[in-house]
Design a protein around this nucleic acid. Structure first.
Lengths: 206, 206
DNA sequence: TCACGAATGAGAATGTGTTCACATGCACGA
DNA sequence: TCGTGCATGTGAACACATTCTCATTCGTGA
């Protein structure tokens, strides 16, 4: 299969979520690219191109079967599996993530929470008992965790990375402002909050 | 001036923050693109191209003057001004943002917090008194707020948008999962948390 | 069964962003 | 002051992503 562009991948999720809503709230069985595009804010042309990377998803003259397309996208993205996640950082942002219900709906389960603040370790937050960050490596290996969310302040990142380096994790979602490099085998997605606001400010100014 | 690509804009902030660190922690006055690139995880080639959009920022054979470049980027991005921000949504995510110190360091000030949950309205969170969301329009106009952060659950977005529509705001940072359209005069930056995890999962799977 | 309308999907063209290669100019030591 | 080396910055090539256009196919109604 032809390589799927990264922007396309990002949009897949929008389609997926929108289709899920349609499935629940709409009476009809099919949706055309114009409507789906309008709902997601993506041009219908582009939407069709995106979907066509994965084969013939629709029916000419009719549109896309909502449930079928939804299920296909679910598999394509990988949301049909359950993913165990470790959250590092039980501060404000971390706590918000623990309580963020939408993750669970997607099959994304935060199953362990770590911190290196002694005040937090051992405390129970939203059902999670915060563990000492020095056990990360051990726990990740034991529980076969594949995804790590980093939501800590920037000072102690290096220690963390050393701990994580020799595990079998596949991806890191980096909400800190530090640059992370864990080699070619680990996907790192940046999610630095400041950065988004930075580009927003630039665009206001120019 | 030639149009600056959006990816470049996003990277500017990384350079800026890194330079700020260098200013504090390094003894030397100049930094070369190789080193700055390594620190930020961006190829030095690309970095030089990015900076060159804004004129001659460095000295051949020597590198970039750390403080000078930092100050230049500050102006280019627009971080030398103070920006008043309204936060909509005093839930977990909203609260995390109120407490997120890095924004203040950037000159980004959340000065008002709104919600439409009666349990939250009137309460004091982290120094902010949560106001009723129905006063958004009034307050935005009065306080000359230019940026709105949307951190609410998705059900009540439409009401919000109607309130915001007729104000003079310039940008919205949309952390909800709904698609927002406020015309061509308002910059909307998407920050949907689920979406990032979605593309992460895809990349693990493929 | 045929004709017409609707909507997909793909080739080609365009637009956008990154990388390559190297000319240019500055720094520094002899 | 001259020559060598270093690092920037830029034109050109390339790679990537979006848009345009339209052939194709299916559905529907006469």
């Amino acid at each position: 299969m032809k390589k799927v562009p990264e922007p396309t991948v990002k949009r897949l999720f929008h389609y997926y979520r929108c289709l899920k809503e349609c499935e629940d709230n709409m009476s009809c069985e099919y949706i055309c690219s114009d409507l789906l595009g309008e709902k997601t804010g993506i041009k219908s042309n582009l939407l069709r191109r995106d979907l066509s990377f994965f084969g013939h998803m629709g029916r000419k003259g009719k549109g896309y079967n909502i449930s079928k397309l939804k299920n296909n996208l679910e598999k394509i993205i990988g949301l049909n599996n359950q993913w165990n996640i470790a959250l590092v950082g039980a501060g404000n942002l971390g706590t918000a993530l623990m309580r963020y219900n939408n993750f669970k709906k997607m099959g994304l389960n935060i199953i362990e929470v770590f911190d290196n603040d002694l005040d937090k370790i051992g405390r129970k937050i939203d059902g999670y008992i915060v563990k000492n960050a020095k056990f990360i490596q051990e726990v990740i290996n034991k529980k076969d965790i594949k995804i790590v969310i980093i939501a800590v302040n920037d000072n102690d990142i290096d220690n963390l990375l050393n701990q994580i380096k020799d595990t079998n994790i596949k991806a890191v979602w980096n909400l800190s402002s530090s640059h992370i490099n864990l080699g070619d085998n680990v996907v790192v997605v940046k999610g630095d909050l400041c950065c988004s606001l930075g580009s927003l400010i630039y665009n206001i100014n120019n």
